[in-house]
Computed example of a mutant assay.
Amino acid sequence: MSETTAELAVHLAAAAHQADAAALVDSAQFMARVAALGPDTPGFVDRVSAAVRQAVESGRPAEPEPTPEAVPLSYNEQLMRTAARQAQLTADYDGSITVEDVQLASPRVVGEWAAAGKLAHLGVPAQRRRGRR
Rank of each mutant, 00 (worst) to 15 (best):
M1K: 12
E3P: 13
A6T: 09
V10K: 08
H11N: 04
L12W: 06
A14V: 04
A16R: 13
H17N: 00
H17V: 00
D20K: 14
A21E: 04
A22H: 12
A23F: 10
V25E: 02
D26E: 11
D26T: 12
A28H: 09
Q29A: 13
A32M: 08
A32G: 09
V34F: 08
A35I: 10
A35G: 09
A36W: 01
G38C: 01
G38P: 02
G38Q: 03
D40W: 01
D40A: 12
T41Y: 01
T41C: 00
G43S: 06
G43R: 02
F44A: 02
F44C: 04
F44K: 03
D46G: 05
D46M: 02
R47Y: 01
R47P: 04
R47A: 13
S49D: 00
A50K: 02
A50R: 06
A50N: 04
A51H: 00
A51I: 01
Q54G: 08
A55C: 05
A55S: 08
A55R: 09
V56W: 01
S58M: 06
S58W: 02
R60D: 12
E63D: 03
E63G: 05
P64Y: 03
E65R: 15
T67N: 01
A70V: 12
Y75L: 08
N76S: 14
N76V: 13
L79E: 11
A84V: 03
R85W: 02
R85Q: 10
A87G: 15
Q88A: 14
L89A: 10
T90Q: 14
T90D: 07
A91M: 06
D92Q: 12
G95Y: 11
S96T: 13
I97S: 03
I97T: 10
D101W: 00
L104G: 00
L104P: 00
A105E: 02
S106Q: 12
S106C: 08
P107Q: 04
P107C: 05
R108N: 03
V109E: 06
V109S: 11
G111T: 08
A114R: 13
A115F: 08
A115T: 10
A115K: 15
L119I: 07
L119C: 09
A120R: 05
H121L: 13
V124L: 10
P125V: 13
Q127I: 04
R129A: 09
R130D: 00
G131H: 07
